[in-house]
């Protein structure tokens, strides 16, 4: 895991990310009282969700979703040569789409494919897998890397999106993401209210 962190953490990315994080804060219309300690404790809850395998395994920087779970003996790349897709769509390749196997609901069969509407990879720039808390935090605040969303948009997305919701109801014996969609939405709201501070990169 540590090795991966190092591999996937090019220093350049951090340097680039910093100005955007500042830009985002300067756009905020009503200045909030920055309570860094409160904000960081809320962020830790958010990070626990985003970095959880149920979320991070499909928020990858490369082209391959990951599989995690006790019976895999750790995390590995998804089998069957499954990839993001030559068109970069995140929906797989012609002949082998994500939706070739992942349907609208979890399979009832042991080790059957999990499912939710619109099963696909997050865009590569939204990578969480193997990223540090500081890296994920700066990505979340960067409109160039968060799908041009405001932090409020992100909170709503986390609360309302069906594919995101799957992370808390992954079916079978998969470990769900911590908390719930609603609790994570609340944490994001609280984090915004406390000034949306990010942990310092180490």
């Amino acid at each position: 895991m540590k090795k991966l962190l190092i591999m996937l953490t090019p220093a350049a990315m951090l340097v680039l990310a910093a100005p955007f994080a500042i830009a985002q804060e300067s756009q905020t219309p009503t200045p909030v009282t920055v309570d860094a300690a409160k904000g960081l404790s809320e962020w830790d809850k958010i990070y626990a969700v985003f970095s959880h395998p149920r979320c991070a395994d499909c928020h990858v920087a490369d082209d391959r979703p990951r599989w995690s779970g006790a019976h895999y003996g750790g995390t590995r790349v998804h089998a069957f040569n499954v990839q993001r897709g030559a068109d970069g769509s995140g929906f797989g390749n012609p002949g082998l789409r994500c939706t070739t196997c992942h349907f609208s609901s979890n399979s009832n069969a042991l080790h059957g494919p999990p499912g939710a509407d619109n099963w696909h990879l997050a865009p590569a720039e939204m990578a969480w897998f193997g990223k540090s808390s500081a890296e994920i935090c700066s990505q979340i605040k960067d409109p160039l890397r968060n799908g041009n969303r405001s932090l409020k948009d992100i909170a709503l997305h986390v609360r309302d999106d069906k594919l995101v919701a799957w992370g808390w109801a992954p079916g079978s014996d998969r470990e769900p993401a911590p908390g719930s969609a609603e609790a994570t939405y609340q944490a994001i709201e609280n984090w915004i209210a406390a000034g949306a501070s990010c942990p310092v990169a180490q």
């Binding site: 040569n81 390749n93 002949g95 082998l96």
Partner: peptide, 9 residues
């Protein structure tokens, strides 16, 4: 590569 990507499953 297209073939490998389509037929891996």
């Amino acid at each position: 590569a297209d073939i490998d990507n389509a037929m891996g499953g």
